[in-house]
Simulated assay, not measured.
Amino acid sequence: MKVSFTYDKKQVLQALRYHFLSRKEIRLMIILVNVFALGSAFLFYFKKILPLAFLVGSFLWFILMLSFWFFLPGMVYRRATTFKDHFIMTFDPDSFSVGNERGSRSYPWKAVSNFLETPHFFHLYFDSRSFFLVPKDSFSNSDEIYQMRHMLKEKIKN
Results as ranks from 00 to 15, higher is better:
Tyr18Ile: 08
Tyr18Thr: 07
Phe20Gln: 14
Leu21Met: 11
Ser22Gln: 12
Ser22Met: 10
Arg23Gln: 14
Lys24Thr: 07
Lys24Ser: 05
Lys24Met: 02
Glu25Ser: 10
Glu25His: 10
Arg27Leu: 11
Met29Asp: 00
Met29Leu: 03
Met29Thr: 01
Met29Phe: 00
Ile30Gln: 05
Ile31Cys: 10
Ile31Gly: 07
Ile31Val: 15
Leu32Phe: 08
Leu32His: 04
Val33Ser: 00
Val33Ile: 13
Asn34Gln: 05
Asn34Tyr: 02
Asn34Phe: 02
Val35Arg: 00
Val35Gly: 00
Phe36Ala: 05
Phe36Val: 08
Ala37Met: 05
Leu38Glu: 01
Leu38Gly: 07
Leu38Val: 02
Leu38Ser: 03
Ser40Thr: 09
Phe42Cys: 13
Leu43Ala: 15
Ile49Ala: 14
Ile49Ser: 12
Leu50Ser: 14
Pro51Lys: 12
Pro51Leu: 12
Phe54Asn: 03
Phe54Gly: 04
Leu55Gly: 11
Leu55Trp: 09
Leu55Lys: 11
Val56Asn: 02
Ser58Gly: 13
Ser58Met: 12
Ser58Tyr: 10
Leu60Val: 08
Trp61Ala: 13
Trp61Arg: 12
Trp61Met: 14
Phe62Gln: 08
Ile63Val: 12
Leu64Gly: 03
Leu64Pro: 05
Leu64Glu: 05
Met65Cys: 09
Met65His: 10
Ser67Met: 12
Phe68Ile: 15
Phe68Tyr: 15
Trp69Gly: 12
Phe70Ile: 09
Phe70Arg: 08
Phe70Cys: 05
Phe70Glu: 07
Leu72Lys: 15
Leu72Arg: 14
Leu72Val: 15
Pro73Ile: 13
Met75Ala: 06
Met75Ser: 04
Tyr77Arg: 08
Arg78Phe: 06
Arg79Pro: 00
Thr82Cys: 05
Thr82Leu: 09
Phe83Val: 11
Lys84Phe: 05
His86Tyr: 15
Phe87Tyr: 15
Phe87Ile: 13
Met89Leu: 07
Phe91Met: 10
Pro93Asp: 08
Pro93Glu: 08
Pro93Leu: 04
Pro93Ile: 06
Asp94Gln: 02
Asp94Trp: 00
Phe96Ala: 03
Phe96Tyr: 06
Phe96Asp: 02
Ser97Pro: 01
Ser97Gln: 04
Val98Leu: 14
Asn100Met: 07
Asn100Ser: 07
Glu101Phe: 13
Gly103Lys: 01
Ser104Gly: 06
Ser104Arg: 01
Ser104Ala: 02
Ser104Gln: 02
Ser104Ile: 00
Arg105Ile: 06
Ser106Gln: 05
Tyr107Pro: 03
Tyr107Met: 06
Tyr107Arg: 06
Pro108Gln: 13
Pro108Ala: 14
Lys110Cys: 09
Ala111Gly: 13
Val112Gly: 01
Asn114Ser: 15
Phe115Tyr: 09
Leu116Ser: 08
Pro119Leu: 06
His120Thr: 05
His120Gly: 06
Phe122Asn: 13
Phe122Met: 11
Phe122Ser: 13
His123Trp: 06
His123Ala: 02
His123Glu: 04
Phe126Ala: 01
Phe126Asn: 03
Asp127Gly: 10
Ser128Leu: 08
Arg129Tyr: 14
Ser130His: 11
Ser130Asn: 13
Ser130Ala: 10
Phe131Glu: 04
Phe131Trp: 06
